[in-house]
Design a protein around this nucleic acid. Sequence first.
DNA 1: CCGTAAAGTTAACGTTGTTAACCAAAAAGT
DNA 2: ACTTTTTGGTTAACAACGTTAACTTTACGG
Lengths: 194, 194
Amino acid sequence: MTTNGNLRGRILEQARVLLLKEGYSAVSMRKIAKAVGCTPTSIYIYFDNKDALIHALIEEGMELLAVDLGSASKLDSAPRPRFRRICMAFLEFGIQNPEYFQIMFLLHPEKMERYPTDKYRRARRNLELFADILREIRGGSSFDTMLSATVLWSLLHGAISLHLAQRLDVGLPASTFIEQVVEHAETMLLSESS
Amino acid sequence: MTTNGNLRGRILEQARVLLLKEGYSAVSMRKIAKAVGCTPTSIYIYFDNKDALIHALIEEGMELLAVDLGSASKLDSAPRPRFRRICMAFLEFGIQNPEYFQIMFLLHPEKMERYPTDKYRRARRNLELFADILREIRGGSSFDTMLSATVLWSLLHGAISLHLAQRLDVGLPASTFIEQVVEHAETMLLSESS
DNA sequence: CCGTAAAGTTAACGTTGTTAACCAAAAAGT
DNA sequence: ACTTTTTGGTTAACAACGTTAACTTTACGG
């Protein structure tokens, strides 16, 4: 509360800076402490452990993504171009913010599993945004649209991970790839019949 | 060459055992050494560093996947069920071998990027397997099919990662999910027109 | 039998996440 | 106003990590 203070905020800020500037491997408690001008131990006053700190960053990223998706969904009134725009926004978010995307969706691997699921409510809300558009465009039961939205989510998610992992053909420009992804996504949701 | 020896093989074996039994975090040079009955330093005789060792495991996994996909593609002569079967095989490989899948596709994050790309030739061959089927079913140029195969690859890849990351609705059974994924994959490749 | 090269070991360096013990200053209680 | 408790922070250390330099042992060719 002191005027100097707000140490918690500064820790988060420097952690984010380190993450975005030098990648995930550079995010160590000691480096954050040095950047913020305190001791590594102090961080444990505000965060239970490194995972908790990372988790706070994940929430930041979720917020950022939600903003991106939200503003993208307000640009078009017609559902079809809106759908395209939202898919694009998600793909571009992942490509433009690889570090955030990594900790948000690719990282959790081992210990993250026991983390509070309700903290991912924001992520769920993003998924529901896709489901809403699907329902608007092609109708269907709530269960079906949610299911399709999940599949769509998988497609977008996988496209970004493969791009970030540089597993795509080097001769394939990213722009045509993501365009094709959106194209396929559209055909996928258009002709849903089974 | 001595009868006791083949230390390189034993290292790889124990690394794999540790990976599959206790997860990626348990794979440390020291633990492998202890499990195999040698010193950590000895590992560096056969592997440049930990990444190189992991990379050898990745190749193992790629081989395993290739076998799965290959045998799946021989079960059906008709292209459509064969397509389904191969998608299923890939999805099931990821779900059944989470540790392998993790190091094969999800891990690379930071340093892996400078790794020899040609070592992923096996992965590319798997991709071409999908492209071949696409060409067989719906024709099209080599470029288009490869592009569609990449998108399909993204979908399958993303579906597995989300499942492994437990980002899917808890009420959604894995079996219906992967079934829906294959379903959507099928509609995606059937009505390609743009 | 000797010299050389390969295979393995010991011991250490620097880094990591995390914790116990301690200290100072502010807040609260009486 | 004085004491007590809580809060915010530090120092020092532990155990584990990947990796390397220097040394020792083993095997083998001449």
